Simulated assay, not measured.
Amino acid sequence: MSEKTVKDLINNGLEERPDLFLIDLKINSDHKISVVIDGDNGVTVEDCVFVSRAIENDLDREEVDFSLDVASAGATSPLINERQYKKNIGRTLEVKAKPDLKIEGELTEVDEAGVTLEWTTKEPKPVGKGKIVVNKQAKIMYDDILEAKVIIKF
C-alpha cells in the first residue's frame, strides 16, 4: 500500500466535499494510516467518518492488513495550509518566523504570499517621559513562518 494510493483515495473523496482538505498523511511500516483533515467550517465526527470510508472502501484488508485513524486538526495545532489561515482571519495568532521574530497579533489578511498581523504595543514617547500606544502591522511570508498557532482566549 503506497502513500500515493491512499492520497489519491482521500483526494477522490474530498472532491465530493470541497469544504474539507488534507493536512497530513502518514503511513508507518506496520500499515497504520494516520490522516489529519481540516475544513473551512471546522470538522465534525461525520466528516472524519466520511474520509475514513473514502479510504476503506477501496482498500482490501485481505491484501494488506491496515489500521486507519482519521482526525481533525486540533485547535492548538500549528497552521500549515493557506486555507487554515483564511478560516482564522480575525483571530489572534502567535507566529514564530525567520530570522528571530515572534509576534502575537490579529490575523487581518491572507494572500498567496503570506499573512498580515496587526497588534498594539506601548512604546516610549518620541519626546518626554512615558509611553504611548502604537498600532503595528507586519506582513509575514509563508516561507518565513516557522510556526503559527491560534491563541485561544477565555
Score class of each variant (00 low, 15 high):
K153I: 14
D19W: 14
A73T: 04
K136E: 13
R83E: 12
K136H: 15
T5G: 01
I145N: 02
K87D: 08
I80S: 05
D24I: 11
E123W: 03
G13V: 04
K129S: 14
E104Y: 00
V6H: 05
E15A: 03
E3N: 09
R53A: 00
M1G: 09
D24N: 10
Y85L: 13
E112F: 04
E118R: 06
S77P: 02
C48E: 14
I37R: 14
N88V: 01
N28D: 15
P99A: 12
T44S: 12
K86G: 06
E94N: 10
D111R: 03
I103Q: 12
I132E: 15
K7R: 11
D40C: 06
Y85R: 14
E118S: 10
T44P: 01
Q84A: 06
K131A: 15
I10Y: 11
E118V: 10
R83A: 11
K131H: 08
F154D: 11
I132N: 07
K7H: 08
K26N: 15
I23V: 12
I55K: 03
K102N: 13
L14M: 07
T44V: 00
S34R: 08
I80V: 12
E106A: 14
L146T: 08
L101Y: 12
N135T: 09
L68T: 00
D143N: 05
A54I: 01
L20Y: 04
E147C: 02
I132G: 09
L93E: 08
S29F: 02
K149S: 13
G42K: 03
L59D: 06
D144N: 02
V150T: 06
I37G: 05
G90H: 04
E56C: 09
T5E: 15
V115T: 05
R83G: 07
R53S: 13
P124Y: 03
F154M: 06
V6D: 09
A148F: 00
F21W: 07
S72A: 06
E16T: 00
I33V: 10
K129G: 11
L20N: 02
E3S: 11
S77N: 13
I103F: 10
T92W: 06
I37W: 11
K86Q: 14
M141V: 04
G128W: 14
K32F: 14
A113G: 01
R17W: 05
S67A: 03
S52M: 10
I10H: 06
H31Q: 15
L59Y: 09
L59E: 14
N12M: 10
K96G: 03
I37V: 08
L20R: 02
S77Y: 11
I55F: 05
D38M: 04
D47I: 02
L101Q: 07
